[in-house]
Design a protein around this nucleic acid. Structure first.
Lengths: 374, 374
DNA sequence: TTGTATGCGTTATCAC
DNA sequence: GTGATAACGCATACAA
């Protein structure tokens, strides 16, 4: 080691100390100085596909490593007008019942080089407050799993902010949407149950906050009417466990008897309904009552429940949302598109069913499992 | 309406058109021009507590509204060196099992004027990849619900990045942490079960990814040893439903008989264990076997389970994490602190228990519920 | 390939 | 209270 010649490591140490003394961050200028090149050369080294010689690249990267230099995304976004951040608006409730959605979206965005800025809503009405924040933060786009009003959509348009609605519809507006066909799901479930001989339905719907459950209810009611079956008893719910129990109680009170089948707007309500039927009312499910839900949440698959339900292809839907959004952001694709997925029927064991495709058995005596094997 | 005099609205329209034509954003200069003041005046109007006269304030705000002006957070953070963003690192699995955590943290941070930039990990090892992103994005601080190595912590220190560990410990390092006393929880559970006469324990632990479950296991084992009871059979698990069933099977195989009680590292495993015990093995729980978990997740409270478990005060813990982090960010509080919360015992109905505080009944015949009422 | 000069949109400093 | 001017840290057009 010669004393007269400073190594680059020594220089780096001195520079770092100076920077720390000035209480500022390491910038591309510092790296440039240490590497003996210009600031723009440093900038180019951190831009994939820029034209830099191997020599300078090596020099710059060594200097950057010695200084712990990381480019500042805020400064970069100021000039490139891309923050590589995407806002995700989701209700606390939705995250509670579909926690996998968040992870899926996050993974999908990460895979596309974007980060997720999270906005959770206690109530759907809080959306106004978060929008102001979103504009400030210069996100490149928004995935909204919350109800947006037409005026919100207009504001997105006005600010040229790409947006994808997730499981929310907005009639008469051209917005990118990713949904599951909830109307079809409701119809499918009603069809399968009717085919197995169920005649009198009860429906535990949702409240107005969440259009998904009302779509499902509408589909089921439509199909039931088409089949000429008695009008179902419909009661509202709040998507939670308790609503399932209260809903069943209300339906029985209103009907004066136990219906053949209960269709619940969500699995958690179905599970609440199921537990109440079995453990409080002592009903044999599916012997005396069929119960079905939607979503195939994790507990629906547990041995105690083994719920008859329909699964939304959430991973596919999250991927589609990410894809649509990134197409608008990166390729400036201005066309709007609606991607509609179909739910998958999960037979489970809480509803009496005839095999799919079997001749309809409306009015025929339904299959009863022998009590012995229950 | 006079033709000769342009209203401010007309001017605003023309200005907006010009801006759109140049394909640039509305800036504080545009607002200044429209309001007839300087750009600095506009800036001050958007800074709470700055000295601006009522007149200019009104002028500026009107112009800003007409132009849909919103300050650019990226530019602001460049000079203030505050992004008002906080990174939250969480494993997909943790979000799956404790979805409320995310909403709590998000709400707490929002209440403190900060946004959450989300980083989900498929595996704990992915933490290296996200850290590089975090440095780029100039977040003000980090809440990490993932395992950080000592070298990670060193890097946080080096970059002077405030960090709070959530439910993770790091021995011999001075970091802000918020945890639940999992060791104590494990001890408490073992004590209560032992007091009710359970002698032979099985433990379904976790894998090394998640220190929480091993702490719980250690606490339980410690206490069991202290009480002079037979050594428990410990098998690993992966925190999921299936692990509960497989764990019970393995424990019975290893022991050659059914133990008195199973302690599971998480509720989901406890539920898996419970379902397997009741529905596959036909065991009477808690008559023949007691099962207990940790966390008091939502399904643990459902009628079908009514699990004996311990609840972490997640809302309090999230608030504490937010508070600690914001203290370091906003008040430059450099002291490190460990906030340790106690879990709350939930009696449930899957374990035979004597009332808390009753004399220990080790070795005494345990209470058995008559089979008739099961 | 490399360096120079400029601008992104804001806040901060300082005269006035 | 108000306005000029200088940063903040980077990317990019352009000249070399």
């Amino acid at each position: 080691m010669s004393k007269s010649k400073l190594t680059v490591e020594d220089e780096a140490g001195a520079l770092k100390a100076a920077i720390a003394a000035e209480n500022r961050r390491v910038t591309s200028y510092d790296v440039a100085q240490l590497a003996g090149v210009s600031q723009s050369a440093v900038s180019r080294c951190f831009k994939p596909g820029a034209s830099v010689s191997r020599g300078t690249y090596a020099l710059v990267m060594k200097a950057a490593a010695l200084l712990d230099y990381i480019p500042n995304a805020a400064a970069r976004s100021l000039i490139t007008r891309r923050s590589h951040m995407v806002a995700l608006i989701i209700t606390s409730q939705a995250n509670l019942y579909y926690p996998e959605l968040l992870a899926e979206v996050s993974q999908q965005m990460t895979a596309r080089g974007k980060r997720v800025l999270l906005f959770t809503l206690q109530r759907e009405a809080d959306v106004d407050r978060v929008l102001a924040d979103i504009w400030q933060y210069q996100v490149d786009g928004v995935i909204a799993a919350a109800r947006l009003s037409p005026s919100h959509i207009a504001e997105f348009d006005r600010r040229r902010m790409p947006v994808v609605l997730f499981n929310r519809q907005l009639r008469d507006h051209t917005v990118n949407t990713v949904t599951c066909d909830h109307l079809e799901s409701g119809r499918m479930l009603a069809s399968r149950l009717a085919a197995a001989g169920h005649r009198q339905f009860g429906i535990i719907a949702g409240n107005d906050d969440y259009s998904v459950a009302s779509e499902r209810q509408r589909g089921a009611c439509e199909r039931i009417a088409e089949l000429g079956l008695p009008a179902p008893v419909v009661v509202p719910g709040a998507y939670d466990y308790r609503s399932g129990a209260l809903g069943l109680k209300a339906i029985i009170a209103q009907l004066g008897s136990v219906p053949d089948a209960i269709i619940c707007g969500s699995d958690v309500m179905a599970i609440g309904c199921l537990d109440y039927a079995r453990h409080e009312l002592g009903l044999d499910v599916p012997g005396q009552l069929s119960v079905a839900g939607f979503d195939a949440v994790e507990p629906s698959n547990w041995i105690s429940y083994n719920l008859t339900t329909l699964r939304q292809p959430l991973p596919k839907m999250a991927a589609a949302a990410a894809e649509l959004l990134c197409a608008r952001i990166d390729q400036h694709d201005t066309g709007t598109e609606r991607r509609v997925f179909s739910a998958q029927f999960i037979e489970g064991a809480t509803a009496r069913l005839t095999p799919a495709g079997a001749p309809a058995a409306i009015g025929a005596p339904s299959l009863r499992l022998p009590v012995a094997i229950m």
